[in-house]
Amino acid sequence: MSVVNQPTPKPLRQSPTRRLATAVEPYLYGAPVVILVATVMLVPLVIGMTYAFRDITLLNPFSGGFVGLANFRKLAHDADFWLALKNTVFWTAASVFFQFVLGLILALLLNRPFAGRGIAQALVFLPWAVPTFLSGLDWAWLFNPVVGPIPHWLVALGLMSQPENILSDPNLAMWGPIVANVWWGIPFFAITMLAALQSIPRDIYEAASIDGAGAFERFRAITVPFLAPTIAIAILLRTVWIANFADLIVVMTNGGPADRTQIVASYIFTTAFRRLDFGYASAIAMVLLGLLMIYSLLIVILRQTLLARF
């Protein structure tokens, strides 16, 4: 077979410069990302930390001087901040709890094959695609007795004496953003759990049922231990994320009524955006960052000890 003549190869000798080029190649590919992220996130982060020790108010030409720990001292006595911190814990705990429980149930439902599963999956995950500001507005409207059905349903169920907007009730207002957040966030947990569920080998379940394990026993002895690491990671990340997630609150209640829905993240935003007090906003942000880091560390330690035990 000699249809093709030998092509004349143009040898590319691997000179030292070429070797160097090979060595720097991956850095070249990674450099744009690193430069972008460093300049837009890391540099501002460091600068923001210096703001915390300065008096920086936009539109005030005399501000900018270093004030030491004044911002933090003010923070310690700021009742709004402590209320926001309390609200943050409630907001985060309730949101994560319901997102997780309902997401896990959804994942278990979807892990079972049935006709139309693909369509069902696309539909139940749809809220995740809804822009957050829009889901906030949408739920605000649903809670509004003028155009929304929810107050009327609550009256019909006897849970409310007359149709009112729970977003304007200081005692209930926080549930508005929480419901919106749960609705919007269930798919995240469901998808994560579903992926983990699908990575459990089928034959382990088959072996267990042959060994005589019932449905509940299989769930307890196989599903839960297999899911545990994913659950731990997902809850950790989600908690940090939700604690920082101010969009829904800014859109639905703007912290009101009477600051009863103000969380730390939305408080930072309000301080920076409305009062233009960047120094104080940065001080709050640093405290929030510190708290979240402590929380993450605790979770990681807890996870390590649990893993070591089992």
Partner: peptide, 9 residues
């Protein structure tokens, strides 16, 4: 880390 920290800077 929380993006809201970066708003001011």
């Amino acid at each position: 880390f929380p993006l809201v920290m970066l708003i001011a800077p």
